[in-house]
Write a protein that binds this DNA or RNA. Sequence first.
RNA 1: GCGGCCGUGAUCUAGUGGUCAGGAUUGGGGCUUCCCAAGCCUCCUGCGCGGGUUCGAAUCCCGCCGGCCGCACCA
Length: 489
Amino acid sequence: MNYEDVMNLAQRRGYLIRSAEAYPNTPAGFWDYGPLGVSLRNRYVEMWRKSIVKRDEMIEIDAAQIMPRSVFEASGHISNFTDPVVVCGKCRSLYRPDKLIEEKLGRATPENLPDAKYDELLKEHGIRCAKCGTPLSGTKRFNMMFKVGVGPQGDEAYLRPETCQGIFADIPFLFKTQRVKLPKGFAQVGKSFRNEIAPRQGVLRLREILQAEIEVCFDPGATATPRFDVAADYELSIAKGDVEPVPTRVSDAISAGTVPNKLVGYYLYLIQSFYEDAVGLKKEEIRLRTLTDVEKAFYSKVAYDLEVRTSVGWLELVACNYRSDYDLKRHSEVSGTDYTVEVDGRKVLPHIFELSMGVDRSLYVILERAYRSEKDAKGGDRVYLSLRPGLAPILAGVFPLVSKDGLDVEAERIYEELRADYDLFYDESGSIGRRYARADEAGVPFCVTVDQDTLTKGEVTVRSRDDRAQVRVKTDELGDWLEAKLVSG
RNA sequence: GCGGCCGUGAUCUAGUGGUCAGGAUUGGGGCUUCCCAAGCCUCCUGCGCGGGUUCGAAUCCCGCCGGCCGCACCA
């Protein structure tokens, strides 16, 4: 199992489609979800909603993707979501001037000096292109936000680079109307846009990504959380750096200072256990990597990346950031709106802890882990997706063993009867083995086959994808049987 | 963005200047009526895009787009 096999299957079976492939000049970094992909994604997001959003009584919103420049002035993205770059005038090599100066001087150089200052420093220290020796000059800014013009005057606005800015922009309204008591989680699923310099590796590095985010607002003076007890003895897979995770009880991690407080500990438990329980990953396949100061985003005080072991190495799926009061303070200042919440008669500006999940990457991980390739009886490859029933886009195929003697009529009747309640597909073309194989590759967990005995005894054969085992089920109990599989899986 | 390699139906691939671009798998239709991609018949879909060289380009050259790898970047 590797990246290419997974992406090949995903594209062949309608999980993923390269966006606008028919047009040769379509830029990289954009992918479409095909029919099976949409369904998988919907199920995955619903699982997240159930396991995290609803369980923790969070408030979910869906904000606009385009917001005015001022929002991103407040968020810091106008000035901080940019990198200074300098291009060699001769060979077009691209450099980060701050990194070059840092290297030369051996001390940290801020990445937010005026552009002219970089040119000055480059000149002063005689820094030249490493490739062709040409002196470097002409520093400019590359902002990774997509700029859009709104209305006939093209008013300056941007596609949000992270979904949370929509939550932050709405929070004063939500505080007022939703009778919010701290701590409170705010959730959102939606697209974010980042103009990556060089997107690569399919859905692992996109310019348009789907995020499922939680922003927890809390009183920094009261970081206890009502549900902490269930998390206290849970073992987090903590990794201090690029190392194997070490199982660490939440309460121990807090005493050791690895985790700043109970609230952060609780939410780390929530997100890691989601990947264990809902996605089916083992503790040693997950790590919460603590980020160093240089790795952290500009708004982040303490940061953990939830990473998962994959065929392409550890892959970051969730950014867990303690953003302190950075965001609400800035939005309050720039917008002039009161962002405080009343707690016991005091006005409190909440702090934020965020769990920012990359949905596309999570789905890739699910597909990669489900991918199975085995030799079949005749020495051919049997490829199937071992998706659990709760996640599989299609729960079962309904097939007449042969399309004669009324078997097709009965199979269609069964299909029609159940298809409103379960995701099924009907197929009578090709041999029964071919139909099983087709279903296997699409990740369909069960195939229901109607044979002669179905007509006389009222029983169908249900064949399982993973072990190819067959059981007989009473036709009129088939709905309950499928329901049970759906609930338990 | 730089360097290297690469780009033929949905997938894998043959084709290195000249007959209608060939095959396999998949997919559609039909026959067969069958419990793990059986067999037979049949059909659809392709040279990434643009320009150049040439009597003639999938093939040679240039540019662009895309892919993979390395560097850089990565909230």
